[in-house]
Design a protein around this nucleic acid. Structure first.
Length: 221
DNA sequence: GCGACAG
DNA sequence: ATCTTGTCGC
């Protein structure tokens, strides 16, 4: 897919925070998504003691969830991991991996938060704005907010609240397994996001998209 | 000032 | 994220 690479990528934490404040108003919280025939999953891993960032993307048919394409991209790590600034560390490599895709995904599930972020611009939202595509944030642990533990049955969920605002959902994707933190990335409402995450999940805690992308990103070869 | 803190 | 085998529970 075509990528319009961002210019003046932040090099410091303060520059990054300033850019998030500038971009947060561009996030679309409502459904602006068409028919979904292809769902993509993206994830990032590290090699060589973290000096090399490895991004992986997988594209699956929807709703069958059959793998149709995958891509990998490696590049030097240039930004440290700082809670709240994850996108500045992982997006550069992700864009290169996405650029190699032959298939144009209709929806992308990202590992990490969407608007469930201190400044409402987690990696899923940031990526969504850059490539102007519907994205959903799928996190395995909490960044910000409070919540009640959802019921044990798969499909149960509770709102994730931060500063009197619902920023996402704590969703049980499988019976009795730890819930995932789902949030709007870009152009996908929370109810729709929850629905797609459940429909992309089969027998594991993580949706197939995220799970397969994770295997490519971490496991070597 | 003291904790919390996606991957 | 990453270093890492077996083990407990459904």
């Amino acid at each position: 897919m075509y990528i319009n690479y961002p210019k003046n990528w932040p090099q410091t934490a303060s520059e990054a925070v300033a850019l998030q404040q500038e971009l947060r108003s561009q996030v679309v919280l409502t459904d602006q998504i068409g028919p979904v025939n292809h769902v993509a999953g993206v994830d990032v891993g590290f090699e060589e003691d973290g000096t090399v960032t490895r991004a992986a993307v997988v594209v699956l048919t929807f709703p069958e969830l059959q793998l149709v394409e995958s891509s990998l991209a490696r590049k030097p790590t240039t930004f440290p991991y700082i809670p709240g600034l994850l996108s500045f560390r992982e997006i550069p490599a992700l864009l290169e991996a996405l650029e190699q895709l032959q298939t144009n995904p209709d929806l992308i599930l990202v590992d990490g938060m969407g608007i469930a972020h201190p400044r409402r611009l987690g990696i899923a939202s940031h990526l969504g704005i850059l490539i102007d595509k519907p994205t959903i944030g799928v996190g395995k642990s909490l960044l910000v907010g409070k919540y009640e533990m959802p019921a044990m049955e798969k499909g149960s969920w509770e709102p994730l609240i931060h500063k009197q605002e619902t920023i996402g959902a704590v969703l049980r994707t499988r019976d009795k397994i730890n819930p995932l933190f789902i949030s709007t990335g870009h152009k996908v409402s929370l109810p729709t996001a929850i629905d797609y995450v459940m429909r992309c999940t089969t027998k594991y805690r993580l949706p197939e998209t995220t799970r397969l992308a994770h295997n490519l990103a971490s496991r070597k070869k």
